[in-house]
Write a protein that binds this DNA or RNA. Structure first.
Lengths: 140, 140
DNA sequence: AACAATTCCTATCGACTTAGTCGGATTTAA
DNA sequence: TTAAATCCGACTAAGTCGATAGGAATTGTT
């Protein structure tokens, strides 16, 4: 049960933008260097974030990326869901489970409740932390 | 961020044993059938659980598996940790992180705190649910 | 107009993990 | 003796991860 680099790098990149995007667009290169992420790989992640509407890009020289919202309105949970998909530890907890009968074995699946509680708990924590919180923490 | 079948099946199998092992050993076959798990695959999982000391086996005809402890003293967290390894969403939260410098980029890694909170929350939930709880739930 | 910086896009890849399968060896109750 | 069962090691198909490669398109600067 690991979080992938997509999620980790995604949060790191968004945090980096929150810290540096007040004086105009921030280039992929500088984010990659500060956060120690492969530039080409980060490019793919930024593309995901852009398509999801969390960042906008400025092409051409002196271009880069900007947040589309206030850091206080972007939670870590938002980013994780974009990068890693819905927070559902098991398939039958997905918004639209493809296999509706997955829990019909031996009556109602008892263990499903366990995973549901864990997912709730994860979501609660992730949704309660915003980029603004992280920035504040850095400046302590 | 999914839980693998190792963890899921592990919990399902342990729950199955808790429900059925009062009248002697429970065969792999019957657990596999009730929980709809491949018999050969489950065999490997039971081997892991046995080596970790959570079940004991009785070989030969009429053999099978038994829990080694009271269901009230086995938490879902115990099982998950055996089946999936330590609950550490990122490597730098492992008990003995192999790369101690992983969080040294840009000073102290701000995002690490996020993952630590999530891990704590997951552990708390998983450790608070025992096999006995699951059995009680089934009987409602 | 040329150049350099930068984002955008598609394809590919090696290593690893997952979720099994297969074939047998060993043990033991009936 | 036989059938039921655990034990063990090797193998595998498919998918994911974390990139890498190569170029096309856009735009500020000179």
């Amino acid at each position: 049960m690991k979080i992938s680099t997509k999620g980790r790098y995604g949060v790191a990149a968004m945090y980096d933008l929150a810290m540096h995007s007040e004086q105009g667009p921030v280039s992929l290169k500088s984010v990659a260097q500060r956060q120690m992420i492969s530039e080409h790989y980060l490019e793919q992640l930024m593309s995901t974030l852009r398509k999801a509407g969390y960042v906008k890009s400025v092409r051409g020289a002196q271009g880069g990326y900007l947040l589309t919202k206030d850091p206080a309105n972007i939670s870590v949970g938002d980013i994780i869901r974009v990068m890693e998909g819905p927070i559902a530890l098991v398939d039958c907890l997905l918004p639209n489970p493809e296999d509706k009968d997955c829990c019909e074995r031996a009556g109602i699946c008892v263990t499903r409740g366990v995973w549901a509680k864990v997912c709730d708990s994860i979501s609660t924590v992730l949704d309660s932390i915003t980029l603004a919180d992280l920035c504040r923490e850095e400046k302590h």
